[in-house]
Amino acid sequence: MLRKIKTAAVTTLCCTVLGAGVAGCDGDAMENWDPMAPATRTAQAAPISGTKKIEVAGRSVNVSCSGDPEKGRPVIVLMHGAGDGLDKLAAVQKTLSKQNRVCSYDRLGSGGSDQPDGPQSFSSTGKILTGVLDRVAGDNPVVLAGHSLGGLIAARYAPDHKDRVKGLVLLDATPPTMLDDIKKSIPESAKGPAAELRAQNLAVFQGQNPEKLAVADGEVRSAGNIPVEVIKHGKPYLKAIPEYGSRLEKAWAVGQRKWLGLSSAAKLSTAANSGHYIYVDEPGVAVQAIERVTAQAARQAHGE
């Protein structure tokens, strides 16, 4: 187990890369980390109202849904960052649910869901997502809105599930090549806190995180012409990291642009007054983007 790094610089990068529960973000978080059956669609199941546990592939998954279902209209599914849970998304979900059906869930190893049986990959965490969508959306299309690691998972999932994912909103999503970005931005020759930050984050990406998820780099694949909004933070706070901050900030910005490869209809914008938690710092920006993408997805579904 890696020891904690308590410098502000380390806290900043760790929180940014994967979420609030990453090493050094909340005191003893790193010390408390563990090292590192397909579901079927149930369109006829009673809609979930509020928070409840559902079974997916033999595991208990904590799910929250609100808003009225509407046949054929996209269901919005919010995806939290690492170390967070659906509770962090509650305020945004409440706002969106005034006019939409909105659900969120805790991934295995997070919030109120079961711990994973063993190491996870994008494939295995994607199977849990499929099971959740089967239950909360049935045959309706979905719009995935993910923050940080949740955005990365959503972006990896969408190209393989074009039949149901009809829109994406990425809120300062972890870049598709973040592992390589860290290695290049902070060289192996780095000393002191930067060296420990590098080692710590490499361990995180190799699966030493609460979800036991190995976060591999990969090419951005197309999900077709679905509406996609990529929103990056506007406050360049990564620059606060001594010596290597500017490199990291640049790599993050480049990574956000790479996500435009997801769709021919993808757009990139900046939340000028936001740090990493865009939906907390500027909830209106997040809500409006999700509503825009949902409306566009609905129009496409009806051939408009």
Rank of each mutant, 00 (worst) to 15 (best):
residue 209 N to Q: 02
residue 71 K to C: 13
residue 199 A to V: 09
residue 208 Q to F: 10
residue 110 S to Q: 15
residue 277 Y to P: 14
residue 179 L to G: 15
residue 153 I to S: 14
residue 88 K to Q: 13
residue 10 V to L: 09
residue 72 G to R: 09
residue 131 G to A: 00
residue 18 L to G: 11
residue 139 D to L: 07
residue 123 S to E: 10
residue 95 T to P: 07
residue 299 R to P: 10
residue 273 N to Q: 12
residue 225 N to M: 14
residue 180 D to V: 05
residue 285 V to M: 09
residue 1 M to E: 14
residue 66 S to D: 08
residue 77 V to W: 11
residue 160 D to Y: 09
residue 116 P to A: 00
residue 117 D to V: 10
residue 39 A to I: 11
residue 17 V to F: 02
residue 194 A to D: 13
residue 298 A to L: 13
residue 202 L to C: 06
residue 245 G to D: 01
residue 146 G to Y: 04
residue 36 M to C: 15
residue 72 G to E: 07
residue 259 W to H: 06
residue 92 V to H: 01
residue 103 C to M: 01
residue 118 G to F: 06
residue 113 S to D: 00
residue 183 K to D: 09
residue 269 S to A: 13
residue 238 L to A: 05
residue 229 E to V: 12
residue 18 L to K: 13
residue 150 G to Y: 07
residue 87 D to G: 14
residue 33 W to C: 12
residue 209 N to C: 02
residue 250 K to R: 04
residue 237 Y to S: 12
residue 177 T to N: 01
residue 182 I to T: 03
residue 230 V to L: 09
residue 57 A to W: 04
residue 145 A to C: 05
residue 14 C to W: 08
residue 132 V to M: 01
residue 96 L to N: 02
residue 201 N to D: 06
residue 13 L to R: 08
residue 285 V to P: 11
residue 267 K to T: 11
residue 65 C to F: 07
residue 289 A to I: 07
residue 129 L to C: 12
residue 276 H to N: 07
residue 56 V to C: 04
residue 60 S to A: 05
residue 203 A to M: 09
residue 100 N to I: 06
residue 153 I to T: 09
residue 213 L to R: 02
residue 71 K to R: 13
residue 115 Q to K: 14
residue 201 N to T: 06
residue 278 I to P: 03
residue 208 Q to T: 14
residue 295 A to C: 13
residue 264 S to L: 15
residue 34 D to L: 15
residue 83 G to H: 03
residue 129 L to I: 08
residue 110 S to Y: 14
residue 82 A to N: 15
residue 17 V to C: 02
residue 255 G to E: 02
residue 211 E to R: 06
residue 94 K to H: 14
residue 228 V to K: 08
residue 100 N to E: 07
residue 207 G to M: 01
